[in-house]
Design a binder for these strands. Structure first.
Lengths: 217, 217
DNA sequence: AAGTGGTCTAGACCACACC
DNA sequence: GTGTGGTCTAGACCACTTC
């Protein structure tokens, strides 16, 4: 790490092999391997068999972002959590989702709208679609006592997910639900999760104005 | 991992020690150690010396988010990058920043406003404050040929940083610069970086409407 | 074919946290 | 004290990629 930041090893440059470094530092090759592997995970090095190890030219800083369970996020702020189901309906997959969730028009989805409150004030509006082909048990749940997020964590573990963060102007109906003005800037999280190649759920989270998603490097 | 997801080992439960698992799986303890260490890094396990290893009760999913260099982000979309300096001035630290950057009123900051374009269209508006106590060389730079982001990556490596994502309504002047309407929802990234305990720079990035910051789990 | 990193083994000592 | 995970060593074989 010191040699990278002091540019003794410049960006793009091939650094010595593990055996050579082990000799130089007077340690075992496994120790060098672990050090280099961790630097590679952090994005400072690029490693290829036979090709050797290179210093990354433009190290992309990586921030790890926690994807919290909303109830815990609210409770950690010292607020009282509650949620309300605003709508619950089973429908055939709408056009807009067939592509992003790998569905056809015959697939049935559970469409759920819920509001999550912190100390009685609107905190986040959730618009969720659950794939009933993948998670048939969801059709028997009313999600009153346990919210959909936590139910899915328990009952439909996912293997991968796509996440996108963006900003949107509150629509008239969103503004009413979130107790803000139409047009207010709303922080949006879109997330689709998968088990292998089968979509589980696709959700749009609209946070009340002023919300910040924080992290650190 | 299988035993966690199938709940053979339930949340909060103490799992067998490394020696016992090595015997059961017929492998070396170092192999068990690496497996458990990686599961702990991913957030599924909590490990403590003498205390043993427990399954995390509410596993917090972690997403890794790339913090790209804006020029490369634009070029990777196949667009032509250019940037313009809109304002450049050296001032004493304003009240609003003294707290978040650990400054007093005698500290001088370089205040920089720049617009980053993709194929000639506004992409992102950058409002940056550079701490000249920590990075005195910045006062000699005009940032015309190399933008502040990349100059700082080269000349002032940081050890830690705070990041916050949010949404804001475009002000009248922001709307004019970003070629959008006043009030449009704008995706905001606020970032302050540090070298040890000295602040380097604090920056607010306002992306043109429609921008999404994507990642996956 | 050959050289690099990826992974594993069997053993050892240590640091920490709990008793 | 004592038991747990944290780390290291010396050696081995393998997988991948380039030549």
């Amino acid at each position: 790490m010191e040699r990278i930041s002091r540019k003794i090893w410049a960006g793009g440059e091939l650094i010595p092999g593990e055996v050579e470094l082990a000799q130089e530092f007077g340690c075992a090759r496994a120790t060098v391997n672990r050090a280099l592997r961790e630097l590679a995970e952090a994005g400072y090095l690029e490693r290829r068999r036979k090709g050797g190890t290179r210093v990354t030219k433009h190290p992309v800083r990586k921030a790890t972002l926690d994807i919290p369970i909303t109830r815990l996020e609210i409770e950690q702020r010292g607020a009282r959590y509650e949620h309300k189901i605003l709508a619950r309906i089973i429908v055939k997959a709408p056009l807009a989702l067939r592509d992003s969730m790998h569905l056809n028009g015959e697939n049935h989805l559970l469409h759920l709208q819920s509001l999550h409150n912190a100390d009685g004030a609107p905190f986040m509006l959730e618009d969720r679609w659950i794939n009933l082909e993948t998670v048939p048990d969801a059709s028997a749940e009313d999600f009153q006592t346990i919210n959909a997020n936590e139910w899915l964590v328990e009952n439909a573990p996912f293997t991968k997910g796509d996440i996108a963060f963006s900003a949107a102007n509150a629509t008239k109906s969103e503004a009413k639900i979130l107790a803000c003005q139409e047009g207010d800037a709303i922080f949006i999280t879109d997330r689709t999760t998968w088990h292998k190649d089968r979509s589980i759920t696709s959700v749009r989270l609209a946070y009340a104005p002023g919300f910040q998603r924080k992290t650190h490097i």
